[in-house]
């Protein structure tokens, strides 16, 4: 890897304390993200997949410092932002932006579309007045909206258009990294494709890197260069898209891929069906977190936690048996 990574996440941990108020005593701890590491290069898209509740959204928000990490390092261009305060974060916010899952709730219903997209410009004193309007109009054009729509309110847009507004807002500061948190899962399939293609185009134009969080594997395969699979707060497999989708090594990844519906009814499928539910992140299993549902688990999986290691070139897996 010749160039330094844009984002380097090292042993990131995010625990939530439940309850534990003045009279409630010590609360339980949710192990939402439990020591994940990955890197992201300029112009690259890393897909982060997993079941709901596996901690992928928490990981995204913690990377953006919308949540304070419990432990670990988040290096942006080599500088650790894990412990920065609100004021010290400001210059970094300019480089990393976010697109949210819910295009309805992530836009203030009382602001016009133009004001919403222009807000980041105003915050950083980049443009005001007519100059701001012109830049916002250009942003609208870039995401496939018309400049006349600037005066409309969010509720007057369709779901796909609102997500375009969210993208325009994220692009306003020319960020180098955008965390897309389930950004198409609330949209119709046809609109999903439009939004994904828009994101791919924007990446080609600007070289922005995406941390693409999703549970839909088809979507992730379409947009990502590399994919990380999360299970109960841990990354179990991280590999190039091609390797992961054609030759998954972790049994959980295998099970996930086999759960993807096959459009061709002629194709014979061997399916590994996982037993049971995801264990509670309040009390994660010992050893390998997947051993309670793993079809190939052995005695040592219950005792020793497998470290993530490079099993094949460019393919990292956390499993004793691979």
């Amino acid at each position: 890897m010749p160039e330094a990574p844009l984002l380097e996440v090292d042993g990131l941990v995010k625990h939530f304390r439940l309850g534990g108020g003045l009279f409630a005593g010590a609360g339980a701890t949710v192990h939402a993200v439990d020591g994940i590491s990955f890197t992201l290069r300029q112009g690259e898209t890393l897909g982060l997949v997993g079941e709901s509740g596996c901690g992928k959204s928490t990981a995204g928000k913690t990377v953006l410092r919308l949540l304070a990490p419990t432990a670990g390092a988040i290096r942006v261009d080599g500088a650790d932002i894990a412990a920065l305060g609100r004021a010290a974060m400001r210059p970094y916010r300019q480089r990393m932006q976010v697109i949210f899952q819910d295009p309805y709730a992530s836009l203030n219903p009382r602001m016009t579309a133009g004001t919403i997209v222009g807000e980041p410009l105003e915050n950083y004193g980049i443009a005001r007045g007519a100059a701001k309007r012109e830049r916002v109009a250009r942003l609208f054009d870039r995401v496939g909206l018309r400049a006349e729509q600037m005066a409309k309110y969010p509720h007057e847009f369709s779901g796909g258009q609102r997500q375009r507004l969210g993208i325009a807002r994220a692009l306003a500061l020319d960020p180098r990294l955008i965390v897309a948190d389930e950004c198409v899962s609330a949209l119709d399939v046809s609109v999903q494709a439009q939004i994904l293609n828009l994101m791919i185009d924007l990446q080609e134009e600007t070289g922005v890197a995406f941390l693409f969080i999703a549970h839909d594997l088809a979507v992730v395969e379409h947009i990502s260069h590399r994919v990380a699979v999360m299970y109960l707060g841990k990354i179990v497999e991280l590999a190039d898209k091609r390797a992961l989708f054609h030759r998954p090594l972790h049994p959980y990844t295998e099970a996930l891929l086999q759960a993807v519906p096959e459009p061709d009814p002629q194709v014979k499928r061997t399916r590994v069906v996982l037993k049971g539910d995801v264990p509670s992140p309040l009390d994660p299993p010992s050893g390998c977190r997947f051993h309670t549902r793993c079809p190939i688990a052995e005695a040592r999986c219950r005792e020793i936690e497998p470290m993530i290691r490079e099993v094949a070139p460019g393919q990292m897996v956390a499993c004793h048996l691979r």
Partner: peptide
């Protein structure tokens, strides 16, 4: 707790402006 308030923080809106605008 609304995402648009979180979004405001993500685009660098100050505490005071978040109160005032959102």
């Amino acid at each position: 707790e609304q995402p648009f308030v979180e979004a405001a923080e993500a685009v660098g809106t100050s505490f005071f402006n978040t109160l005032r605008r959102h």
